[in-house]
Design a protein around this nucleic acid. Structure first.
Lengths: 138, 138
DNA sequence: TCTTGAACCTCTAACCGCTAGAGGTTGTAG
DNA sequence: CTACAACCTCTAGCGGTTAGAGGTTCAAGA
């Protein structure tokens, strides 16, 4: 395998400028180059970039991915650290779900508004009043 | 009411640089100024900023808020537009919840990994393999 | 072997929604 | 009248990309 950056991009679904960005911030190692300075990648890089992409899809931050990659590179280390990172991330995700669910319910109520004039529109009303309410109770 | 920017900030819970930023991008109108160029706000601005803050808390993008503010300013317009904006936002939120729920389940499985060596760690494994799977099925 | 032209290169700047800091000015309470 | 908190503008930074300008290289076909 001797892939140009465009091939790597197609294989992993990661856009070309993003691949170069990952190299720049040290998530991907600098690949070998042709005489004309074009990047050439092998299967190691495909695997590593897939790892990164999946972790990003799962919402891990670049810093967390850097740590996970460090662990993955050293097969003798205990996975306790990976466990911790993942656990922390899981807690955040649960929290986010809870907040989004509350938000969804609020939006459902607002959407119940149907084609009245703005002056009697629940949506505008909720947005305008709620701020006041929050202010008064805080 | 003749509030300095710090007072407005305390009343609405919006940080001072953020208030100035909202003015800069045209979400908040330029307020009156003292002779020494300090901003002074009235109750209109308090209301408007509360509206903005609440909409941001609900996850509306600044562009959407701009539209909602436009509607709120014109009480004779039909609220159909507000309905549309909110509906679109609701759909996004639902989608996000679905994806986060799938993610949560995946993370729960991963967290089940307990203190093995990295070489047999579910977390690293899932991250590494999943990318491959996704690639192969796409 | 030469010629296209698609794909690559680097560099800079923009995106969103803020936030922070430097360095200077104003308002107000004592 | 003085001290100092709060304000001012301006610039730059964050994370995680993405876009564009302007120039070079690679590979396939004639």
């Amino acid at each position: 395998m001797n892939l140009a950056i465009g091939d790597l991009s197609r294989r992993t679904g990661v856009k070309i400028p993003t691949i170069r960005y990952y190299e720049q911030i040290g998530l991907l190692p600098s690949p070998v180059r042709t005489e004309g300075q074009q990047r050439r990648y092998g299967s190691d890089e495909v695997r590593r970039l897939n790892f990164i992409r999946h972790a990003r899809e799962l919402g891990f931050e670049v810093d967390a991915i850097r740590q996970l990659l460090g662990l993955a590179d050293d097969p003798n280390r205990c996975c306790g650290e990976a466990h911790e990172i993942t656990k922390a991330h899981l807690d955040e995700v649960k929290d986010k779900i809870a907040r989004l669910t509350a938000l969804r319910d609020e939006l459902e109520t607002m959407v119940a508004c149907d084609n009245r004039r703005v002056s009697e529109c629940r949506i505008i009303e909720v947005l305008a009043d709620h701020g006041q309410c929050l202010h008064e109770t805080h």
